[in-house]
Amino acid sequence: MLSRRLFLKSTALIGCSVAAHPLLNTIAFASAPGENRLVVIILRGAMDGLDVFQPYGDPALRELRRTLSVGPENGAIDLDGYFALHPALDSLMPLWRVGELGFAPAVSTPYRDKRSHFDGQDMLEAGTGTDLDLRNQRDGWLNRLLQQMPNVQSETAYSIGLDDMRILDGPAPSKSWAPETRLRLSAQGQRLLEHVWHDDPLFRQAGGQAMEIIGSGVSTVEEENGPTRDARLLARFAADRLNGDTRIATFSIPGWDSHSQQEKVMSKPLARLAAAILTLKDALGDNWGKTTVLAMTEFGRTARENGTGGTDHGTGGAMLMAGGAIKGGRAIGEWPGLADRDLYAGRDLMPMRDIRAYAAWALRDLFDVSQDVLTRTVFPDLDMGDNPGILA
Score class of each variant (00 low, 15 high):
Asn151Val: 08
Asp48Trp: 00
Trp288Arg: 02
Phe83Pro: 05
Gly15Ser: 15
Arg347Met: 12
Leu233Ile: 05
Met93Asn: 08
Ala172Val: 12
Ile355His: 00
Met1Glu: 11
Leu349Pro: 03
Ala283Gln: 15
Pro59Val: 15
His198Ile: 14
Lys175Gly: 11
Ser17Gln: 11
Gln205Tyr: 12
Ala275Ser: 14
Thr302Tyr: 05
Ile77Thr: 04
Gly333Leu: 04
Leu234Lys: 01
Leu234Ala: 13
Ser216Asp: 12
Gln137Trp: 02
Ser116Leu: 15
Pro269Val: 07
Leu366Arg: 10
Pro22Met: 02
Thr291Leu: 03
His195Tyr: 13
Asp48Gly: 06
Ala46Val: 08
Arg135Gly: 15
Arg44Ala: 09
Gly329Asp: 02
Met149Gly: 03
Gly215Tyr: 00
Ala360Thr: 05
Ala235Gly: 01
Glu63Asp: 12
Arg341Cys: 01
Gly217Tyr: 06
Ala210Ile: 14
Leu24Ala: 13
Leu234His: 14
Thr228Cys: 13
Met149Phe: 05
Gly333Val: 03
Ala172Glu: 09
Tyr111Pro: 01
Met319Ser: 02
Val221His: 14
Pro351Ile: 10
Ala46His: 04
Ser258Trp: 01
Gly71Cys: 08
His313Gly: 12
Asp348Ser: 08
Asp48Thr: 02
Leu192Phe: 05
Ile277Ser: 07
Met384Leu: 12
Leu134Ser: 02
Ser154Arg: 11
Ile326Gln: 09
Gln121Cys: 07
Val221Arg: 11
Met384Ile: 13
Val52Tyr: 02
Thr292Glu: 01
Gln188His: 10
Phe53Gln: 06
Asp199Tyr: 14
Asp80Leu: 11
Thr246Arg: 07
Arg272Ala: 12
Ile77Ala: 09
Met350Gly: 00
Gly226Leu: 11
Arg301Leu: 01
Glu298Met: 08
Pro269Phe: 01
Ile27Val: 15
Gly385Phe: 00
Ala238Asn: 07
Ser186Val: 03
Arg184Lys: 13
Gln190Met: 14
Asn287Tyr: 14
Ala303Thr: 09
Lys268Gly: 07
Leu95Asp: 11
Ala12Thr: 10
Leu23Trp: 12
His21Gly: 03
Val196Trp: 15
His86Trp: 02
Leu382Val: 11
Ala104Met: 10
Ala126Glu: 08
Glu73Gly: 09
Gly226Thr: 08
Ser252Asn: 13
Pro94Ala: 09
Gly329Gln: 04
His259Phe: 02
Pro269Tyr: 11
Ser260Gly: 07
Arg66Glu: 14
